[in-house]
Design a binder for these strands. Structure first.
Lengths: 216, 216
DNA sequence: AGGGGGCTACATCGAAGGATGCACCGCCGG
DNA sequence: CCGGCGGTGCATCCTTCGATGTAGCCCCCT
C-alpha cells in the first residue's frame, strides 16, 4: 500500500485529488495539508511514500516545502502545478522533486505518476520533458561521449582530483581534502590536463561540471 | 494520421514493433529500416512524423542516425533501447531525440510515446526521467537567482570577461579576444571575483556555465 | 626472484593568475 | 566650470598554478 500526503491550498482541488487517489486500491491518503508548513510537518510525522505537492501555497511555497521534505528523506515528492513555468519546474527539480505534473492531467495519469515516483522513478509532464531535454542538450554542453570515456580512463585518484576541480577548489584545498601534499595535487592536475587534452584547470572544471563530477 | 518509420536491425523485433504500431488506427508505418544509414535515407525521402529508432544498429548507430535526421528536420526521433545506459541516453538526447524508451514497455506505452513525440512533446522511460532529473538538479547547480542578480550588477565589460571565463579562456586569450592588455583582463577578473564573492577564476567559470554565460 | 609498468607521491622552477595602486575618460550635479 | 564618480585601462608585486624529473610502491608477469 502506497501512503500519500496531499498538499494543496484550494480545498476543492484538494478534495478532487484525494478522490482520485482513493479510487485506486493501491493508494492510501494518510494526510492532507493546506499550506507548505503543514505539508512539511505532516510528512515528517507520517513519513509517507509520496507527497503530492502543489507549487503555489501560502506560508511556505511548494518548492521550499519540497526541499525540506526531501532533505529529511520523508518521502518522494510529486509536484503539481497549473502552469508549467520554467521557474517552477527547475526550482522544483533542484529542490529534489521526483516528478512534475500539470493539473490538466487525467485521473489515471495522476495515479500512475504516484506509483512511478513511489518506486523511485521519475515522471514529468510531456511538455516539461521536452523542455528539460532541450535544456539538457543545449549547445555549450557538447556531451562528448569521448570526454566521458577519457574520464573513465583516469585513475581513481585522478577522478577524485577532477571532482574537486569541478567543485572549484584550489590545489591547496584539494590537497587538504584528499590528504596529500599540494605538490602531489599538482601532479594529478597536470596528468588530468594532459589526458583530457585541456589547457587549464578552468577547462577541467567546466568539463567536470558537465559530467556531474562535483566534489562538495 | 501520424506517419512512422521504424528503424531496428533485428527483424523479429522490428516486426513486433510494426505490429504494435499498426494496431493503432492513428498510426501508419510508412517505412522500415534495418540499419542506421537506411533509416536516414528513408527519413529524408519519406519525411515521416516520427522515426522509431533503435540505439544499436549496424553501419551507423542510432545516435548518429538521429543526429542526421534531426538536423535535416526529417521527423521527431523516438529512441528505443534494451538497456538504459547513460551513454546511450545522453548521446541520444544531445543528438536531438525527442524521447527515449526501453524495450520492456507495454504496447500502449509505445503507441502513446509515438503520439507524444509526434505532437512535439518529449517522453522518457521513468527510470531515465529520474536520472535526468538527478543530473539536472545535481548539487553544484544552485540556480541562485542571487547569482543572476549579482551578474546583472556587473558592468558590461565585466560580463564579457565573465563569459570568456565561462568558455575556459586564459587571461591572455581573453585580452586578445576583447582587444585589451592582459593586465586589464586581470583587473576585470579581480573585480568580478570580488563582486561575486568568489575565490578563483575556476569558480567564476563554473558560475558562468550555470548561468549559460559561455563565450565560444 | 627479478624486472617491468602503472599509480601515487613529492620538489623545483618558470608561467599564469590575482591583488593593488594609479591614470584616463565621460558623465552628472553643483 | 569643475569636482566627484563609475567604468575602463595599464603596471607592479606576490601567489598559485602547471610542467617536469624523480622516487617509492604494489601488482603482475614470466
Amino acid at each position: 500500500m502506497i501512503r500519500v500526503v496531499v498538499a494543496e491550498d484550494q480545498a476543492a482541488v484538494r478534495a478532487a485529488l484525494v478522490l482520485i487517489l482513493r479510487s485506486d486500491p493501491g493508494l492510501e491518503v494518510v494526510g492532507e495539508a493546506a499550506d507548505g508548513e503543514q505539508a512539511v510537518r505532516l510528512a515528517l510525522e507520517l513519513r509517507p511514500d509520496v507527497v503530492l505537492m502543489d507549487v503555489q501555497m501560502p506560508r511556505m511555497d511548494g518548492v521550499a516545502a519540497t526541499r525540506q521534505v526531501v532533505e529529511a528523506g520523508a518521502g518522494q515528492v510529486l509536484m503539481l502545478t497549473t502552469f508549467d513555468l520554467d521557474e517552477y519546474v527547475y526550482g522544483a527539480l533542484r529542490a529534489g522533486a521526483a516528478g512534475f505534473l500539470l493539473k490538466d492531467l487525467e485521473a489515471d495519469a495522476l495515479i500512475e505518476g504516484v506509483h512511478t515516483v513511489a518506486r523511485g522513478d521519475g515522471i514529468l509532464a510531456p511538455s516539461v520533458t521536452r523542455r528539460l531535454i532541450g535544456t539538457f542538450a543545449r549547445p555549450g554542453r557538447p556531451d562528448q561521449p569521448k570526454a566521458r570515456e577519457a574520464v573513465e580512463a583516469l585513475t581513481p585518484r585522478e577522478r577524485e582530483v577532477l571532482a574537486c576541480l569541478g567543485g572549484g577548489l584550489s590545489n591547496g584545498e584539494i590537497a587538504e581534502r584528499l590528504e596529500m601534499a599540494e605538490a602531489t595535487t599538482k601532479t594529478h592536475v597536470s596528468r588530468i590536463l594532459a589526458k583530457l587534452e585541456l589547457r587549464s584547470r578552468v577547462q577541467a572544471a567546466i568539463l567536470a561540471q558537465d559530467l556531474g563530477l562535483v566534489a562538495r
